[in-house]
Amino acid sequence: MQIHWLEVTIAAIAIAVVLTRVLSKGAGWLSWRFWRGAMIASSITMTTILFVLSFFTVQEARPGSGRIPPWTVINHEIGLKWDAERQWQVPVVGEETGFFGQVYSPEEAEALVNKGKITFQARNCMECHTLLGNGAYYAPDLTRAWLDPWWETRIKPMVGAESREEAMMKWLMNPPQYPQGTRRMPNLNLTEEEARALVAFLKWMAAIDTNGFPPHYSLTYEQR
C-alpha cells in the first residue's frame, strides 16, 4: 500500500482536533475539561496511527520484501548503484558467487545470519560501532562494512586471505594484531564459527535498502 506522509499528517491533526471537540463538548477552550479532552484525543489518535503505520512497516520490513534482502543474499555479489530518481544509492544484488566457497540453502543462510546476529549482540558490538547509524560512535559504521574497499586493498594482503569473507573473518578473530588507526578493536575471542556467522550477518545487512544511508558510500577523496 502506498502511504503518503502529508496525508497522514493532516489526517492525524484533523482527527485529534475533531476528537478533542467531541470529548470536551461544551467546555470553554481554556478550561480543565477541554485540555483533558485534548490530552486523551491526541494520545489515542497518535497511538492508533502509530500502530497502523507499524503494521504496514512490518510488511515491508520482512526479509525478501524488497527493502530487506532474503537471507540467501549472502551467496550473491552485492553492490550499490546511484538511483537518479530517489537521489541516493540503492543496493543491487548480482550473480551467485557463493560464500566461503559454498552456496547456502535458505535454511542454512538464515541459521548462519541468525548466529551472526546473536554473536553481534553477545559481543556487545554496538557499544563501539554503529549499525544503521545507531550505536556508540567510537568505531566505524557497519551498515555497509561488507562493501568497504579496505578489505580488498589493505586487510586481504595483511592477513593473507584469498577472499573478502576470509579476510574479514581472519581480521575479526584477532583485531589487535592488525591495528587500523589509533583506536584499536579488542580481541573478543571469536571462534571461527562465530566470525564466519558475523561476516554473513554483515554481508546481509549491506544489502538492506536504507534510503541511501550512509550517503555516497565509498566515493572517497581518491575518486574525487
Binding site: 546511484w82 537518479a84 555516497h216 566515493l219 577523496y221 575518486q223 574525487r224
Partner: peptide, 8 residues
C-alpha cells in the same frame, strides 16, 4: 549526482 566537493 554532484561531485564530492560540491556535496561537502
Amino acid at each position: 549526482m554532484i561531485d564530492t566537493a560540491a556535496r561537502a
